[in-house]
Every structure is written in structure tokens, then in C-alpha cells.
Amino acid sequence: MKKMAGALVLTFVLVFTAACSSSSSGSQESDSGEWKPDKPIEIVAPAGPGGGWDTTARMAAKVFEEEGIIQQDIGVINKPGGGGALGWSYIHSKKSPNSLFVSSPPLLLVPLNGQSQYTYEDFTPIANMIADYGAFAVRKDAKWDNLNELFDDMKKDPSSITVIGASSPGSMDHIQFVKVAKKAGVDIKKIKYVSDQDGGALTALLNGSADVYTTGVAETLEQAKAGKIKVLGVTSEERLDGDVVSTFPTAKEQGIDATFVNWRGFFGPPNMDEAALSYYEKKFKELSDSEAWAEIREKYGWKEMYMDHDEYMEFLSKEKDELQKLIDELSLGK
């Protein structure tokens, strides 16, 4: 018994000493004066494997390495939880220029809903890469042929129209619809919104349980091709390119001056050093311009939307203000 206890103590003492003498970290400026990562880079996807953030991060890492844009090893780390909040607080605590993360509108919406203490201002936006847009679809045999007809009916009798989306009130699917509906003059407090997170939203639309489906353009494509649903409006500035997609009218061309971008880009830790920032900015520009990335965009139906740090900052602050107003009006913020 004594021997065993001794061994026990010894092991844990060893482990503890090892823990305390943690290795040095960080990066240095190389001889040429230009900043370069001296350690493997980690890109954090603040969600589990398989989703949009994870795919973007993994594909970016793949192209960076295969095309030789970045010489260092790049690992993708999943930090799911809290709708992204856990991943963000992980990066915030790391403060290493070798840790980046991928994000999209939830980085603005989750803190606005009071569910994360960090927002985009607590990080360094590096570059935006791609964009996706929202689409509002109804059944083929629905009585509405454009957004205005739909919104007119919603103004008359909001309780008769059910809007369904995959996420909860205050998050993307809901907010993109609310944003367009508000511009069209609908009382957004009366919109009947149902959230279905188990993948039943589209079937609920098809079988008549719900009337309007608010989602991303890609999700509506196949059903629209098959003529089962019609897309009344998309949230992009101009019509999108592509087979069938080009037939989707924008909200704007129907006289409703509202857009919603599901942007996706990369961020660094807070107060990232000037040199490191310009290094990454350059690399992401190279990535965005590469053919391999264009192919990936094509495959996943993502649209190109490159913004450098300055453009990104300006864009984000404008987006945040607009979303803030909507959340306030719905009094969803905490």
C-alpha cells in the first residue's frame, strides 16, 4: 500500500512540474523584417464537424497547404458550443497570432441576443471570403407570386401565415425575413415564426404545415428546379448567376429596399499585430484569387465576396447597427 501511494504521489508531482513549466509560445519577426508564423497555424471552427464554418475552415486549410500559399502546417480545431460563444472565448483567451477563426453573421447576432460577451469588435477581422444569401420560398400552388402579395396578406392577417426556418427567433433565418418584411411595412412583432431545428422545415413547407420557408439560397435550389416550390425573393443586391438561381427575383427589384448577406470570413485574436495582420490579409487575398478556391466556391455554391481588413471593419459596423435596431424592436436583446 505504501509503495503504491509513493508511486502515485511521484507520478502526479512529475505531471504537475511538467504542467507548470509550460513551453514558450508566440512568433517572431524573421530576418527579412517580414512577419511569418513560426508555429503551426490553427483555424478554429466554433462548431462541430460537418457544418458551414467547419467546411469553410477545412477547405481553406486544404487550399493553403496544397497550393503552397502558406508553408506552415495548418490544423482545423472544432470548438462547438454556445452557438459559437465557446469558440470565441477560446480565441480571446489564446491571444496568439497563430490562432484564427472562421465566422459569419452569428458573430453579431449571438452577442446582440445576449448570449456571448464577445462580438466582432473584440477580435481582429482579417478578411471576408465568401457570401451566401437568404431566400424565401413558398409551395408551388401557393397563392402568392411575389413578395409584395405575400406581405400584403401578412399585413391584413398575420396569424394566418406561418413562417418556418431552422433557427430560433433572433438568429439568422428569422432576422433575414424580419429585415425584409419590415422594409415592406409589415408589423414584425406579429409575424408568426416557427423554428424547426431537426431538419423538418422544408417538409413542413411541402406538406402545408407552414406557408413560407426562410433559408439559404442553396437549400431551395433542388426543389425549385423540380418545380415543387417557388422562390419569391432572395436577399442579394442583384440577381445571382447560375442555372435556375438567376430566375429568383431579388427583394430589391420588387421595390423592397432590403438586403441580407450571409458573409463568411476569417478573424484573428484581439489587437493582432500590424505585421501579422498584413501577412494574413495578403495570404487570404491569394487564397480568394486562386483557382482551387474558385472551384470549391463553385462546388458549394458560395459567391465570392472578398473584403480586406478595412473594408471588413466598416461593413461589420454597419451590419451590426442594422441588426441591433431589429433586435431592439423585437425586444429580443437581453
Binding site: G83, N113, S167, S168, P169, G170, S171, Q197, L332
Partner: peptide, 9 residues
């Protein structure tokens, strides 16, 4: 957790 229908934690 966050309630899907209302967004209430």
C-alpha cells in the same frame, strides 16, 4: 439550453 421557439435561454 436555448429554447428554439423563443430564443430564451
Amino acid at each position: 439550453g436555448i429554447d428554439a421557439q423563443t430564443g430564451t435561454p
